[in-house]
Structure formats: C-alpha cells, structure tokens
C-alpha cells in the first residue's frame, strides 16, 4: 500500500483536486508573460481551465495589455483555434494587435447584448483557445454556469468587469484587481488558490504606461 509509505501524505496533498488555503496547489496554467505576475499567481500563470476576472476602474486603462503576451504566444499555437472577443467596449484595432505579435486572423469578435450567453457558448464549444468577455452585470449563478462551461470545454475564459463588483461573490478561479499607474499597473489578487497577498507591480516592457 503506497498510502502507508512515509511520503504518502505529501503525495496525496499534491493531487490537483486538493488544495489547502495557502498551499500552492499544482494547477495547469498559462504563463502571463510578466515575471512578477507569474511569480505571484498560483501555479505560475493564468489558470489553464476556468474563469479569470479582471476588475478595472474603467475600459481602456491597460487591462487588455495584461493579456497581450498570452495572445501573442497563442499566435504560434497549431492547430489554429479562435480567440473570441465578446462584447468588447470598442473595436479591437487589428494593426495594433498585429504590431504586438497577435495573429489577427484568429480573432473572432462577437457583438451582443447577451455577453454571458455568448461566453457560455464559446467556453462550452471547446472551439476556442481563449474567450474574452466584457460584462456589465452578472449574477453569481450565471458566473457559475460560465465556470462550469469552461471546465467542460477545457477553455480559459477572461471576464472584464467593473471595480464595483469586487465585493460581490464570484465562483471564478482567479479574481484580479487592476489599478493602472504611471508606467505599468498594480495588481491585487482578490481571490486565488494560494497566490500572494501583497500587491504585484508590473511594468510595460516598452515603458509605454497606460496612465
């Protein structure tokens, strides 16, 4: 019986389905492309499967830049799959995306008044590499549906929400509070499976601060 061996408890606790408070559970992740952020996040990156919420004070303060390194890396993934943008606040500008190394041809934009439904379809289908959605209001119950759909479709989903929703309950895997500053941003992990508690500062590589 392997369970009776000396290190069996340690082995058991390493199982991905088990996590305890601050312990670093082994979860499948995607590197964010920012070293400081990778070190702060549990597992060293964005959750590979499940919902991540990014709470920003308003649209267009750099919150999209957080995902640019990941989007750029997905350009090289084969076979190609869609990156779905659901109800973005403005038009994603293809030349700028291309300049950041993002594969423009793989981006799919969905304009809808019901972003949660579209997000569920995108996550559930398994046809997307990544799904991004800009959501104004969402009940914890509908977020739970998204979280389950992401699990079924094995897809990472990112929700951009307003800062005011920080106090609401959410079943998301990871909740990040985003605050822009002079040449980068400060991130706080509102909810994570064992991430750091201290704020994480990141700097944009080109010194191209959002604020």
């Amino acid at each position: 019986m392997s369970l009776l061996k000396g290190n069996s408890l340690a082995q058991l606790l390493e199982h991905p389905a088990i996590w305890r408070g601050r312990s670093a559970a082994r979860i499948d992740t995607l590197s964010t492309g920012f070293r400081a952020l990778d070190e702060g996040l549990p597992g060293g990156g964005w959750p590979r499967i499940g919902l991540t919420e990014i709470l920003a004070p308003r649209h267009g303060v750099g919150e999209l830049r957080l995902l640019l390194p990941l989007l750029a890396r997905l350009a090289a993934v084969s076979p190609p799959r869609w990156v779905v943008w659901i109800a973005p606040p403005f038009e994603p500008y293809a030349p700028a995306l291309a300049a950041h190394g993002v594969c423009v041809e793989r981006q799919l934009v969905v304009r809808t008044e019901t972003p949660l439904w579209a997000m569920e379809q995108a996550l559930d289908s398994g046809a997307c590499e990544l799904a991004l959605a800009w959501v104004r209001r969402a009940q914890p119950r509908s977020l739970r549906r998204l979280q389950l759909a992401a699990g079924r479709g094995r897809t990472p989903g990112f929700l951009f929400r307003a800062l005011t929703t920080a106090c609401e309950a959410s079943p998301a895997e990871l909740r990040v509070l985003y605050e822009p500053d002079e040449a980068g941003a400060t991130l706080r992990l509102l909810k994570s499976r064992g991430g750091v508690r201290t704020p994480i500062g990141i700097r944009w590589e080109d010194g191209d601060g959002a604020a």
Binding site: R81, P95, R111, S125
Partner: peptide, 27 residues
Amino acid sequence: GGARESPALIERLRARLGAGAVYALCL
C-alpha cells in the same frame, strides 16, 4: 484542434445574434 467545433460555434452564435454580429478581423 477545434476544426469541427469552430464552424458549429460560429453558426450557433450567428443563429441567435445575426450574421453581422460575429466577425473576424483582417489587416
């Protein structure tokens, strides 16, 4: 890959939201 699923997803989205609401980008 999502070879078979991706047309299905696009059709489902378009069936509900209309053809113009789902589009790709090009340079």
